[in-house]
Design a protein around this nucleic acid. Structure first.
Lengths: 344, 344
DNA sequence: CTGAAAGCGCTTACAG
DNA sequence: CTGAAAGCGCTTACAG
């Protein structure tokens, strides 16, 4: 690539100092600079197709105007939808975003954080994986501005934007019970992460509050590594035997996708054979034979708030902001009332 | 944030020059540096938790080790899957990626390119929108390393990784005809982009080669802005009247998703009422009531080749590499033979 | 085996 | 109204 044009080139061409060029191009000290000179500088900059070297500027100003975003997997619609919202929000403030996928792996997440900090990102938005608590504590110790999304560590006093997972899980199970279902299974990811445990807790609490006995075998935790096979196995188990479950609650979009595919391949009729509630609303759900009752996360709100909080933390004080948003239970046909089902 | 630790801090602590520290930490001139000194430097670096300032390094070396990625919309699974592959490939070479979504809008794409170049990305991977030909030509003129993906401009001699869209569209329609379908509709995006036209061309060529008369009204081009409503309308039109189409070919995942949703809401039976072929294999397809015949793009290949070509162009000569990959027609139940349908 | 010094392309306090 | 100069944190050719 040819040498790029610099402030110096413009300065020489116009016959002024780089100082002046810098001021003009940054619209600073406008009242102190002769109109004609400013005009001329702009013209030449345009003519030479000048483009600020943001790297040099960053070195001097100690700001890169870039945010680091660490998601679980950018290919997952949950992550990529959030990424899009964050991109737009960052862009409105002239920030760009560098992203990385942690694959729920703390080593990867540590490496990503390190890479992003070397690149001097002004701040981080992180959906932390399991066992990343110490990494996050480190960030805090180093006074790096950051905000967690989706997940957080209750023992750590950090900024985050998340859901009241327990409440919405509770309401989903509540709804199933109200619809006449009693034997309700849960398929969730095996995870030590707080948000996943909260979803489980909501499920258990609702059953308990309705004095429904819980059959431990109705609660299935599938390992991250083999979600597909294990989800299918879990469904098989839950439907086998003399007391098959009547309803199933999937606690995230991955489990839900594999689960629904399997339910379809088993040619089960939803909700007649099995009622369904899913966590996360995704495009894919719309193609399922029965409209699926799901928990809709306020993605826009999460992305916007996270970016806003982060930018505030970058600009000013490092106050801690913790946001717990409400998710919405979107009721559709897959949880139609047991009675209603018979009528149909 | 506290001042970060620099080479100078380490140098002072150890009592050597920054030169030496730099050499040691970059594993350079190893044979010329006293073992004990090197050892000590590493220890102190570790102890102070030193992290290279990549910005300063970049300014000096004129390399940022970052790639710019411009996709249509990171929230679309096609884009995000590619982004993930490119992320991994870049990461293997110690590159990170900054991304942006153009929304098929040339103004946004121009702005993104500008932003990324200001940030001195070493190269760009771009899925260019319509009317971006001049921007791409500009890049070329400025000797910016870049490679186009998914789309390209046939009049521009640039590197790209794309599909033989015409061939695979041709084979898809061929397949429908072989399965006994004669009235075959096409729903595509209204676009001047070459790849979309190639898909259309493949459709038309196949019909022609089989001497099937083409009813112009079977070819529907829906505007980007109102994909959902217009796709639904198109389907309505194609199924109305005395000569409804028997099969439908959707030329990308967005049209396909809206189309399939609508077909489902109309309670049409696939393939009995209507056979379906989709461009792009997405997770969502798996939830449709009938397994859908689709065109599977070699996403991994596209992402990997694009990254590889770009990195080569960054490192060395700026030779132009144009890759046309074959896509695969994955045959499933949605295009089961007309005869077979009757047997069932 | 080691270090002083220049320079990457900006910004900005200071002097005039 | 304008400019010389220092400095951001690195790398590296050169000298010793």
């Amino acid at each position: 690539m040819n040498r790029k044009v610099s402030l110096k080139d413009i300065a020489q061409r116009v016959g002024v100092s780089t100082t002046l060029v810098s001021y003009v191009l940054n619209n600073q000290k406008e009242n102190r600079i002769k109109k004609e000179v400013a005009q001329k500088i702009r013209e030449v900059a345009q003519e030479l197709n000048y483009r600020t070297n943001q790297i040099a500027k960053s070195l001097k100003t100690r700001k890169t105007a870039t945010l680091g975003l660490i998601v679980a997997d950018i290919a997952n619609p949950f992550s990529s939808s959030l990424a899009r919202i964050i991109e737009d929000e960052a862009s409105r403030h002239d920030y760009t975003v560098i992203f990385g996928s942690s694959d729920e792996n703390p080593q990867k997440s540590r490496k990503l954080i390190d890479t992003l900090l070397k690149r001097q990102v002004d701040g981080l938005i992180i959906a932390p994986p399991q066992e990343a608590e110490s990494q996050i504590a480190d960030l805090q110790r180093q006074h790096v501005p950051f905000v967690l999304i989706d997940r957080y560590f209750p023992d750590l006093k950090t900024s985050y934007v998340a859901l009241d997972n327990c409440a919405v899980a509770y309401s989903a199970v509540d709804h199933l019970i109200a619809q006449g279902y009693r034997r309700i299974g849960l398929i969730t990811l095996q995870s030590s992460l707080y948000h996943m445990n909260e979803r489980k807790r909501g499920y258990l609490a609702s059953l308990k509050d309705h004095s429904l006995t819980l059959d431990k075998s109705w609660l299935k935790e599938v390992p991250e590594e083999q979600v597909k096979a294990e989800t299918e196995k879990a469904i098989g188990d839950l439907l086998a035997g003399p007391q098959p479950v009547e309803a199933l609650f999937f606690t995230n979009n991955t489990v839900a996708l594999h689960g629904l595919k399997h339910i379809q391949s088993l040619r089960l009729h939803v909700p007649d054979d099995l009622a369904i509630v899913c966590f996360d609303e995704t495009d894919a759900l719309d193609l399922f034979s029965t409209p699926v009752t799901c928990i809709r996360q306020p993605l826009r709100e999460i992305g916007q708030q996270a970016t806003k909080i982060l930018l505030e933390n970058i600009d000013k004080t490092s106050k801690i902001t913790q946001v717990n948003l409400q998710a919405e239970l979107v009721i559709r046909q897959s949880t139609a009332q047991a009675v209603q089902r018979l009528v149909h």
